[in-house]
Design a protein around this nucleic acid. Structure first.
Lengths: 333, 333
DNA sequence: CCGGAATCCTAGAACGTTCTAGTTGCCGTG
DNA sequence: CACGGCAACTAGAACGTTCTAGGATTCCGG
């Protein structure tokens, strides 16, 4: 409708309030150097006209954008939880977020490319498949913080959950319930998968259960968990730690269809504490990542790089915590 | 690392290639008015220097941003599916998307406010609780397309699924399986809820089943479905149509815990075809919204408003389709 | 009544692009 | 040879803001 009309600019506000553009700018920014009366009048006029600062022009001039680019994957439920935390942490640090999504038909490269044009001051990357070397070429231009993945380079900060510790917590919990024959369903080549697997192995050894170590190939999807469950059926252990919640869901389904009760015959622990695991009929014991700590860590690293403080740890590792629900119980065998 | 260095600008490219800034601009935009040789040389130099156009400056000057703002809710799985479709549709129309998320601690007003500063040319809103009058005040500034909600105003375009038709499809399907005692679990005050409810009622009447019309209060959450199921247990119908998939999941859980088999004793139809409904152990018969059609419709409306063509329908209503899975079957009673 | 500081305000450049209105050089034509 | 037309290119303004440098005005001590 009124989209044909010209946008209200600072010049309009200044003219209406009878001051210079520069002064109007001072008032709008809340910068010192304007009288109280004028300040109030300009503010009022701006309000009346419905003035909205043009962030592009502002950034163009001031050089700084106070904008952090975030690349997330629409398919990954955990990314959405993380976004919530990231908005809070960024706001607290005085930064805005600009989002770029990876979708089944829109790759990481496209998502990052869009962000680069947007003049954000750093990029926060959620997971992804991009090679570290490729990441490095972006890091040469602006700070890159990679979350939930590894990247062994001095110029890339990494913030992630302590996957090994999470596996330890899962195994400790199961052992405390009396389990000894505990199997791990693997995540394949995904980020975090190797750490969760070796964490499981270490924990088993620590409990003197080296003989019971058993790793079954799996993956991130429901069908991966289902396939793993079928392999387990021939000789089922009393407990399983699974790479993630979704895979655990698939596993649970197949186990139950084959007459096993959970947690009577077999206990199951997932990973991530996604909303799926919280559903009443799933009610999965799982390892929860500390979303707020992850988000705060990422923002912290990004801001430190932006503001040129090269101190602090290159990698931030956040301890997860065990969430006990109804898929784990004392062993009956 | 190199973040302290100045960003590469068009002036750098122009200087390096030995041409004017204006000509470099022409080449970068692919606009006519440059010789083939020069064109190639400038392109090569830009590549070498790693030049990235500054979208802010570009927009500032050219007035048009070719940017569409999207407000989505991180908690709503369906929104993520829709984002995928929207990126495609926007790309095809030559527009970029800028995302602003609603989170548990970040309201719609904030999300929209950020978008207004970003100079996008229209706003696409996913659902939300905002009052139509408030929406109208935004629509006075720039085109607003509301998806999955209603808004009876000439200045707001609306794109949504045909909720009534979806309910008809659900009822038709159940009737064709021999069901007569079909109950509807309501969505409360949410957008689409009233349409789905009256659609159910109409369909029942159309099949001469007016006497069997029964609506149980529910809501969007799993616990709402569970509560509704408990109410149904005293006198269970042979089939239920539920407001959405998540609610249906809660309902299914309670029904099964109370010894009812699905679809043996009772058939259940959800709504939305979320990834949840596709899980092997849920495998819910549901009504799928046509994501690509919804996305294309939204982009189409937005672009038409932006480009000042006031033709076309104000509201775009997309027919859904039934997806039969394992929670519906012939009635045995 | 003068000098100096503090307070409030303004003019004008700058940011990196695009756009308008040219200028230049060359070729073909009458 | 003058001239129009075209292709290739350029100078400089413009977009809406912020920032730097400085101009009034007032107040106060000496």
């Amino acid at each position: 409708m009124r989209s044909g009309e010209r946008r209200i600019t600072l010049a309009d506000v200044a003219a209406e309030a009878g001051v210079s553009v520069a002064l109007a700018s001072i008032v709008m920014r809340g910068a010192p150097g304007a009288g109280a009366v004028t300040r109030e009048r300009v503010t009022k006029v701006a309000e009346e006209l419905g003035y909205r600062p043009d962030s592009r022009a502002r950034l163009l001039r001031s050089g700084r954008s106070r904008l952090l680019g975030v690349v997330f994957d629409v398919r990954h439920p955990f990314h959405h939880d993380l976004l919530t935390g990231l908005y809070d942490a960024a706001g607290a640090a005085g930064y805005q977020l600009t989002l770029s999504a990876v979708t089944p038909r829109r790759g990481e490269r496209t998502a990052i490319g869009d962000l680069l044009q947007d003049r954000c001051e750093a990029i926060v990357l959620f997971g992804g498949q991009m090679r570290t070397s490729e990441l490095a070429s972006i890091a040469a231009r602006l700070p890159v913080v990679a979350m939930m993945r590894s990247a062994r380079r001095r110029d890339i900060d990494v913030v992630h959950n302590d996957d090994a510790l999470g596996s330890h917590q899962a195994v400790d919990h199961l052992v405390s319930l009396g389990h000894r024959r505990i199997t791990h369903v693997d995540g394949g080549t995904l980020h975090g998968s190797a750490e969760r697997r070796t964490g499981y192995q270490e924990a088993m050894r620590r409990h003197g259960l080296a003989d019971h170590v058993r790793v079954v190939p799996g993956g991130p999807g429901e069908e991966d968990g289902a396939r793993a469950a079928e392999k387990l059926l021939a000789d089922p252990p009393t407990a399983v730690t699974v790479f993630n919640d979704l895979s655990a869901t698939g596993l649970l389904d197949v186990l139950r269809r084959n007459g096993l009760t959970v947690p009577g015959d077999i206990s199951v622990v997932g990973y991530d504490d996604t909303s799926l695991s919280r559903l009443a009929h799933i009610d999965l014991t799982t390892i929860a990542q500390d979303i707020d700590a992850l988000a705060a860590g990422a923002i912290d690293r990004a801001v430190e790089r932006i503001e040129g403080v090269p101190a602090g740890p290159r990698a931030v590792v956040i301890p997860p915590r065990l969430v006990v629900r109804s898929t784990t119980g004392p062993t009956l065998r």
